[in-house]
Amino acid sequence: MENVEIGKDLLSKEEIIKKYKKRSQFWEVWRRLRKNKLAIIGLIIIILLAIVAIGADFIADYDTIVIKQNIKGRLQPPSSEHIFGTDEYGRDIFARLVHGTRVSLTVGLISVSIALIIGGFLGAIAGYYGNKIDNVIMRVMDIFLAVPNILLAIAIVSALGTSIINLMIAVGISSIPSYARIVRASVLSIKDQEFVEAARAIGSKDITIIISHIIPNSLAPVIVQATLGVANAILSTAAMSFIGLGIQPPAPEWGAMLSGGRTFLRDASHITIFPGIAIMITILSLNMLGDGLRDALDPKLK
């Protein structure tokens, strides 16, 4: 009777340990991140922006408010009716900013995903196999790195044509090398560790080792880079739209809105001011979160 009790007890203890262990790394990082005020402010702002992006349609209707022109009410300064005023076509700037959040966050996330998947894959292969494969991949990456990011993105868009998908591809491709480098570096530091050797000893395939052992253990720097990467992607998107190579009007994109207000700097500067602030707040909070994550994930600071 007693033995069974102990057995039961042990089993549940194991379960508890298992549960606890799985959670511990996440909780440990979260505990450290929580102490960093800037990072938490950044995180809260990003969550708010994400909510705004998802619920944009509830705040303002796309067809009747965001893109419908109203020439009579153009260039109105901020008022109680239009808290950020109206733009050169009489559209409510606040509503356009809200929908612009959706555009920016989507483009940011998708282009980083493109860069992360391709760059991560190349970096993992280069780091894991080393030698010739490593050399070939990394030299190609060096060539990509020799062209300033935005110029590469501009070249790609100018060749493929301006559309939201081409923009995401361009911004994504131009940041592949930074992910390849980071993943390669962390794979290099992991691939000779004992648990990888053990996996190899029991006969796991290379691809299994890479996917289930190496990648999960090299995630920390990648997460940091991806957070900062979304900020960069949003900035590049705005920049490209500003020079007319990104998202085309009448779609509400922050950089394109800014560009539209350029002609009215003297009389209606609010058209230009507010989209810039929106970009700045988004980039700032992503950077603060990214920096905080870097500190929280860095085992050296433990």
Partner: peptide, 11 residues
């Protein structure tokens, strides 16, 4: 580091 420089220029 977060300010878009084209916006900053316009300001």
């Amino acid at each position: 580091a977060a300010v878009p420089n084209f916006w900053y220029g316009l300001m």
